[in-house]
């Protein structure tokens, strides 16, 4: 129910804020819901807040599993 998009952290702004980038658009969001975050990491952004960090390994594994299941049918 919640529009949330993956965005890359490009700058830490202090005071619980960070600048994130999706494509060529940037936005300042609050990091108050995260314990810590670093530049280069990806977060899920919803209503001006970073909700969680994206796990790159899990993402890769999910894609690999999708590819594997696709091959099983062909």
């Amino acid at each position: 129910m919640c529009l949330a998009v993956p965005a890359e952290v490009v700058e830490l702004l202090g005071e619980g804020q960070a600048r994130v980038r999706i494509g060529a658009t940037t936005q300042v969001v609050s990091t108050a819901l995260l314990d810590e975050v670093a530049v280069g990491e990806y977060v899920i952004v919803h209503v001006g807040f970073a909700l969680t960090k994206l796990d790159a390994d899990e993402a890769a594994q999910t894609l690999a599993l999708m590819a594997e299941w696709s091959e099983e049918v062909s």
Binding site: L3, V5, A7, I22, G23, A24, T25, Q27, V45
Partner: peptide, 12 residues
Amino acid sequence: HPAVAGACELLG
């Protein structure tokens, strides 16, 4: 435009 696409994702 890719920049528009990203903005659209953010805005829904």
